[in-house]
């Protein structure tokens, strides 16, 4: 048996991982989440703003990382919509445009009374600008130097939300969801830290350790990976219980089932690997 394991084709491991993710996903397993302090800090940052505050939603990710980050972006958008905030969408990723589209669709379809047909007065899509951190440096100093029009080519001076907005130091909160460079780190280094812009972020699990040192001084809070998204969704549901019946408000929670089984599989694989290792050592082959 151990000899078979020693020469195990890694495709069997791949198959096990496929099943570990697919089965709970198909079965729709969800578990209750307890909201951690870090996630509560994010929740409170949005919740404690007066209704109708101005929030910049910088969505810096692409389809590749959408699986991990879209639940966060949707949760941020939904929470802002519940608070009737004015939202400015923007992205530093060329593939970010369609990601913004998903959030604006959510606003229009799920919260029509506040946002339907209110483009320009309740939300605006500034779209993509090339230039990475250079764009951040510009928008925190002078928005219109970088963005003279929105995504539809309308001059920002003709849009009610942006008419009097000199730069994003004037907004009440910056929400960034990012999958890498340019992303959260650049927003902190060039945007929120030098100008004291209250900032919350959502990032991939891999990025989380590099963003941890910025909490709580430069960052108010962070959602790390699917776990963070699920906890945030739970916090929103606890505050707005009517969402409990809305499956779209539980995208992150739904992904925690596959994560649980996949993590248990990983632990099993680590244990198995070690059994083989100690057996090899006993045989004197290691």
């Amino acid at each position: 048996m151990l000899k078979i394991l020693q020469t195990l084709d890694r495709r069997w491991i791949f198959l096990a991982m496929f099943l570990a993710v697919a089965i709970p996903l198909i079965m729709g397993m969800t578990f209750p989440e307890k909201t951690s302090d870090q996630v509560m800090a994010v929740f409170n940052a949005v919740e404690n703003l007066p209704d109708g505050s101005n929030v910049v939603m910088a969505l810096d990710y692409d389809p590749a990382s959408e699986g991990e980050l879209q639940p966060m972006a949707s949760a941020f958008t939904r929470h802002c919509a519940l608070k009737k905030h004015n939202i400015y969408f923007m992205t530093l990723w060329p593939q970010g445009g369609p990601m913004i589209q998903r959030s604006t669709d959510l606003l229009e379809n799920d919260y029509p009374e506040t946002y339907k047909g209110k483009y320009g007065s309740k939300y605006v899509n500034l779209g993509f600008r090339a230039g990475n951190e250079g764009v951040i440096k510009l928008v925190v100093e002078d928005l219109k130097k970088s963005y003279d029009t929105d995504v539809q080519g309308t001059n920002l001076n003709d849009i009610p939300l942006t008419k009097n907005l000199k730069n994003i130091q004037q907004v009440d909160l910056l929400c960034n969801v990012s999958a890498g460079y340019p992303g959260s780190k650049e927003w902190v280094l060039y945007g929120s830290a030098p100008f004291d812009i209250p900032t919350v972020i959502g990032c991939t699990g891999v990025q989380a350790p590099i963003m941890l040192p910025y909490i709580p001084q430069q960052l108010t809070g962070m959602l790390a990976a699917i776990k963070g998204a699920a906890e945030y969704e739970q916090a929103i549901i606890n505050r707005y219980p009517e969402l409990n019946d809305n499956p779209a408000a539980k995208e992150g929670l739904k992904r925690m089932g596959p994560q649980l089984v996949a993590h248990v599989l990983l632990i099993g694989l680590i244990a198995l690997g070690n059994v083989i290792y100690f057996w090899e050592r006993k045989q004197g082959t290691a």
Binding site: L49, P50, G52, S53, N54, E141, D142, N164, K166, N167, Q169, Q170, D172
Partner: peptide, 17 residues
């Protein structure tokens, strides 16, 4: 001329123009 409209409970504003 109007240069900004901060919301309630806000007590500071930076005019960077």
């Amino acid at each position: 001329e109007i240069i900004g409209e901060p919301t309630y409970r806000v007590n500071k504003f930076r005019d960077s123009n």
